[in-house]
C-alpha cells in the first residue's frame, strides 16, 4: 500500500516524520505559512495538549522544517523554503491518508525521527518484547 506514495514523499516521511501528530503539526503550519504559532495554539487547533504539541514543534524545528522565535514561549512558523516539498506531502496525505499513516508506523525500527516522550519511553522500557 505504501508503494502508492511518490518516492520523494516517502523519503521525506522516513527522514523527517516520526508520528502522525508530527505530520499534522507540519501540515497545520504550512497551511498558513505566514502565521506564527505557539505550542498552545497548535495544541488547541489540533485538539491535543500543549506539551505534546511543543514536543512536535521542537522536533520539527530541530529538522529545520519550522523555525522558532526567541520569544517566551517560542512562536513557530513554517520554513518556507520547504513549501514545495511539504505541499507535495500534503497532497499525498489528502489522497492516500491510510497509506501515509501505514508508512509512518511501519517505518524501520529507528527512532531517530521520533520525538521521545520520556514518560512513555520509561513505560516502554519495561516491555521485554517490542511491539510489532
Amino acid at each position: 500500500m505504501t508503494d502508492a506514495i511518490p518516492a520523494d514523499v516517502r523519503r521525506f516521511i522516513l527522514d523527517h516524520i516520526g508520528s502522525v501528530e508530527m505530520l499534522n503539526v507540519l501540515m497545520l503550519l504550512f497551511k498558513q505559512p505566514g502565521r506564527t504559532w505557539t505550542a498552545n495554539e497548535v495544541g488547541s487547533e489540533l485538539r491535543t495538549n500543549e506539551w505534546s504539541a511543543d514536543l512536535q514543534l521542537q522536533a520539527l524545528a530541530a529538522r529545520e522544517l519550522v523555525r522558532a522565535s526567541t520569544d517566551t514561549p517560542p512562536r513557530y512558523q513554517a520554513e518556507t523554503r520547504h513549501a514545495a516539498q511539504v505541499a507535495s506531502v500534503a497532497r499525498t496525505y489528502e489522497e492516500r491518508r491510510v497509506a501515509m499513516i501505514t508508512l509512518i508506523y511501519s517505518r524501520p525500527d529507528d527512532v531517530a525521527a521520533e520525538p521521545v516522550d520520556p514518560v512513555q519511553a520509561f513505560a516502554d522500557a519495561f516491555k521485554i518484547r517490542k511491539d510489532k
Partner: peptide
C-alpha cells in the same frame, strides 16, 4: 538494564 537498553535506543535522558 531494561532502562539502559531503552536509553540507548531513545536517548531519553529520564531513562
Amino acid at each position: 538494564l531494561l532502562l539502559l537498553r531503552s536509553y540507548r535506543a531513545t536517548r531519553a535522558r529520564l531513562l
